[in-house]
């Protein structure tokens, strides 16, 4: 463990080009996936929480079930979509960071949506009626309800980020761990472990945790200042 920590510090301090490339790709893939997942998941959660329509419960049940979607299954679905014979095969996305983002988006959406539904649910009716009685339009009401549930929603975004930043199955399946192209921290850890370089694997793990810690802190800071008028 101590050797891993030393090596992690050394890798960062010496400005190892490869390690920075892997770090930035990991962040780019996971942050993009979380951003897309949030842009889809939060409005979807607001819609499901505020609108009544037949089959709403069924849709919610499906979303809650997909929160536990195995990464390899998400990877397989995207693989089938983008492989040469798949419906998106013409785009040649397999073994690219875009494919990795697509797989991670699939994992993030149910988590962000499900946890946002939980965050909004319970107080949405009183909040929505308060907004309406104060003259808010439909979209303004939805924004207010989402804003009031921001603590829970950000927790959902953090959970989603944690899930995809640390997952290996989906990105390995559609990214392939290609050096200087699709290698991210988790796939690099697998590679180093398979090669018996446990200290290097541990160092990469420590870097992953530190990055996760920094991103979580930044996201938590978002809670403050949302919805202020002055």
């Amino acid at each position: 463990m101590g050797e891993g920590l030393k090596q992690a510090v050394a890798l960062l301090a010496t400005g190892d080009k490869d390690i920075y490339e892997i770090m930035f790709l990991s962040l780019r893939v996971s942050l993009t996936a979380v951003m897309i997942g949030t842009l889809i998941g939060v409005p979807l959660a607001a819609f499901l929480s505020l609108c009544r329509f037949p089959g709403r419960r069924l849709v919610e049940n499906v979303i809650f079930s997909l929160m536990g979607l195995p990464p390899v299954l998400a990877g397989l679905v995207i693989y089938l979509l983008i492989s040469r014979k798949g419906p998106l095969g013409y785009a040649s996305l397999l073994w690219t960071p875009t494919a990795m983002i697509m797989a991670q988006v699939l994992l993030v959406i149910p988590i962000v949506t499900g946890l946002a539904i939980v965050a909004i649910r319970g107080k949405e009716r009183m909040l929505a009626e308060t907004a309406l009685t104060l003259g808010a339009s439909g979209p303004q009401t939805a924004l207010m309800v989402v804003g009031e549930a921001r603590t829970g929603i950000i927790a959902g975004v953090l959970t989603g980020f944690g899930r995809v930043f640390a997952e290996v199955g989906a990105v390995m399946m559609v990214g392939g761990n290609i050096e200087h192209n699709t290698r991210v921290l988790t796939t690099a850890i697998v590679l180093e472990t398979r090669q018996g370089s446990f200290d290097a694997a541990l160092a990469l793990g420590i870097i992953l945790l530190v990055l996760s810690f920094i991103i979580s802190g930044l996201l938590l800071n978002l809670q403050r200042g949302v919805g202020r008028y002055v």
Partner: peptide, 13 residues
């Protein structure tokens, strides 16, 4: 229902 904001922001909503 009080919004999770300041008194000012509640009144200004």
């Amino acid at each position: 229902v009080m919004l999770h904001r300041s008194v000012y922001d509640n009144v200004a909503y």
